[in-house]
Computed example of a mutant assay.
Amino acid sequence: MLKLLGTRVLGTRERDAVVRALGADPVAACMIAARVQQRGLGRSALGGEMWTRGGPERALCFSGGNLVPLAGTRHDVEAFADRALRGPRLCTSLVGRSELAIPMWAVLEPRWGPAREVRSDQPLLALDGAPAVMPDPEVRRVTMDDLAPYLEAAVAMFIEEVGIDPRLHDGGQGYRERVAATIRAGRAWARIADGRVLFKAEVGSYSDRVGQIQG
């Protein structure tokens, strides 16, 4: 009984079951579904671990740079929080639907301390058809020639959104390469005038069903 109620790390052989489980909520799970579909469940490739309690179709949580409760009951997310407290803190943010993330944070906060910000009511927006407005003809795909101004805008947006500077730990080399990789992959668009980015957007993650637009 104790083994059944405990949490465990999902292995590489359970990838297909995890993909099916994430498909039940494709919009909210897009970021993690994309990783699992493209990289599998190996810890180094995935950038973290996928936890379950009772099987992936019942309860799921991703633990990596973000801690992401994906499915389960209140008792499940509390169990995931307890597992996170057993080792060193690995994540910078707790992300997920409020009905999962807020109860998890209630368990974590007494040990981890207060959050920079708690967003208990942040809309999750989705578009499943054609947009209602005409596209801006000045928005174009970003090239590597645009890296400098695009990176400057990306850093500013990151600081405004997350509250920390992504260049702190290594002088910005890691974040610069991440932005450059997005550009090289053809997933960044912007309106740039006189060397200044007026608008930017990129496909941050994409599963086989959903693309996550950020910017």
Rank of each mutant, 00 (worst) to 15 (best):
G87H: 15
I102E: 10
A130M: 11
L124V: 05
Q212H: 04
Q212S: 01
D136F: 10
G171A: 05
D76K: 10
D146A: 08
E57I: 11
E202T: 11
L4M: 14
A17Q: 14
V68K: 01
S63Y: 00
G113A: 07
V19D: 01
G211C: 06
M1Q: 12
A188N: 06
W51S: 04
G55V: 05
F199S: 07
A153N: 11
R97L: 15
H169A: 13
G96P: 07
E49P: 01
F199C: 00
E117T: 14
A45R: 06
D145H: 10
P135E: 00
A126F: 02
R191K: 14
A33I: 09
R191P: 13
G204I: 02
E161L: 03
A190Q: 07
S120D: 09
W105C: 09
L108R: 11
E160N: 08
A130Y: 00
V19P: 09
L85N: 05
M1P: 13
S44E: 03
F199H: 12
L198R: 02
A81K: 01
H169C: 09
R35L: 10
P135N: 01
V179G: 10
E109C: 06
L41F: 09
P166K: 10
P26E: 09
L198H: 11
L10E: 00
M134N: 02
H169F: 15
M31E: 06
S93N: 10
D170T: 03
V139K: 08
L125Q: 03
V210D: 08
L168M: 01
F199Y: 14
G87T: 12
A79D: 06
P110T: 05
V36C: 14
V210T: 10
R184V: 14
A59D: 03
R178F: 15
Q214M: 15
A154T: 12
A132T: 10
T182F: 12
S63H: 11
M157D: 13
P137F: 00
L4T: 15
